[in-house]
Amino acid sequence: MSRREQQEALSRTALGVFRLNGQFLALSEKLAEPAGLTAAWWQVLGAVLPEPLPVAGIARVMGITRQSVQRIADLLVREGLAAYEPNPAHRRAKLLTPTAAGRAAIDRIDPGHAELAALLTRELGGQEAFAETVRVLERLSTALDAVEGGLSLP
Rank of each mutant, 00 (worst) to 15 (best):
L20K: 08
G112Y: 07
A129H: 14
L140W: 12
N87C: 04
Q70Y: 11
H90Q: 11
G102H: 03
L153F: 12
D145F: 13
A14D: 15
E51N: 07
L81C: 06
A56L: 08
I64S: 05
Q127A: 15
A35G: 02
E29K: 06
A118C: 09
R91L: 12
S68G: 12
T99M: 03
L10Q: 07
Q23R: 14
L81G: 03
Q67F: 15
P86I: 05
E148Y: 14
R3A: 15
T121V: 05
E132D: 09
L144N: 10
Q67E: 12
L20A: 12
L20S: 12
A9Q: 13
E138Q: 10
E138F: 13
L96H: 01
S141N: 15
L31V: 02
L20N: 08
N87H: 09
A83K: 13
I72N: 03
E51W: 06
G126V: 03
S11K: 11
E8P: 02
G125F: 09
Y84Q: 03
V69P: 01
P111K: 00
R66P: 04
R19V: 10
L144W: 11
S68W: 12
G125I: 02
T97M: 04
Q23T: 05
P154Y: 12
A131C: 11
P50E: 02
T13S: 10
A14N: 10
E51H: 06
E115D: 15
A104R: 04
T99N: 06
Q7A: 15
S28L: 04
G125N: 06
T38H: 05
R78P: 04
A56S: 08
L75S: 14
L76Y: 04
L10I: 10
L120G: 07
V17H: 07
A82F: 04
R71P: 14
I106W: 09
A26N: 04
L151P: 03
V147R: 10
R135F: 14
Q7D: 11
M62A: 07
L120R: 14
Q67P: 14
I64W: 03
A47T: 00
E29D: 08
T121P: 02
A26E: 05
A131H: 13
A39V: 01
T13R: 08
P98E: 01
A56D: 07
G63A: 03
G149W: 08
A59V: 00
L49Y: 10
A35Y: 02
L119C: 13
P111R: 01
L153P: 03
K30S: 11
G57H: 00
K30F: 14
A105Q: 00
A83M: 09
A82G: 05
L137R: 13
P50M: 03
L137W: 10
A14E: 13
G102E: 01
T133L: 13
L31E: 03
Q67C: 10
S28G: 08
V134R: 09
Q23K: 11
L81N: 05
R92L: 12
R19A: 15
M62H: 08
G36C: 05
T13P: 06
L49A: 11
Q70S: 12
